[in-house]
């Protein structure tokens, strides 16, 4: 199921947040070799993991972390405007209805099929959250190798500038438009599946 956590504080489920920070360490530090801070040798947590961050987490039947993403409000400092403004031909998108997708992370401990399922549920949950909360666009920084996959989701996604070689990786900035028809576009590509249990869980 998909779980939304707004900010790092006041959550009964610290276990799931810890699992997410651990999974992020395994993906971004151990696998992708990003130069980002690690806490206690186990958790990947940076300056943007504060009370303004929104976490979208998908879990399996036993409540284990399978995938997650962090949404940052673009009205506050975020990755694109703080670390990579050079990736945008104009100024990075900024607005109350624009959030930045960061730390899109799929747990490494699953096979290819489970990873795709987790990925689709995570994308669906992010879009549901956006529509429910008046978010009309996402921005984000991605390695160019991911772009083909991101485009293939079928949503409206355009580059914000030319990619650049930064720290040995070719990075690009993207903008994704979210609207009422986004779930239909994603469904057509077999990406979107509404999370029926999400509302029930949040109400509990």
């Amino acid at each position: 199921m998909a779980i939304i956590m707004e900010g790092r504080r006041n959550h009964s489920d610290h276990r799931l947040l810890r699992a997410m920070f651990e999974a992020r360490k395994r993906v971004f530090v151990d696998l992708l070799r990003w130069d980002v801070p690690v806490l206690d040798g186990r958790y990947e947590i940076d300056q943007f993991d504060d009370e303004n961050a929104i976490y979208v987490i998908v879990t399996d039947g036993e409540g284990r972390h399978r995938g997650s993403a962090r949404l940052l409000p673009t009205m506050r400092p975020h990755i694109l405007d703080t670390l990579f403004p050079q990736l945008c031909a104009d100024r990075p998108p900024r607005g109350a209805g624009i959030f930045e997708i960061t730390r899109f992370c799929l747990d490494r401990e699953q096979d290819a099929t489970s990873r795709l399922i987790a990925r689709n549920r995570l994308v669906s949950a992010m879009v549901d959250y956006a529509i429910d909360n008046g978010i009309h666009a996402f921005s984000g920084v991605a390695e160019v190798g991911w772009l083909q996959q991101i485009l293939a989701f079928g949503w409206r996604c355009s580059p914000l500038g030319l990619p650049r070689q930064i720290g040995g990786r070719m990075l690009g900035a993207l903008r994704i438009e979210i609207g009422e028809n986004t779930p239909a576009l994603l469904s057509w590509n077999k990406i979107y599946a509404p999370d029926m249990l999400q509302g029930a869980l949040e109400a509990a």
Partner: peptide, 16 residues
């Protein structure tokens, strides 16, 4: 090169 990178990716998605 960076221009070609994006053109190639978008062209492939259109072909797809």
């Amino acid at each position: 090169m960076f221009f070609a990178q994006l053109i190639g990716t978008y062209a492939f998605e259109r072909a797809r």
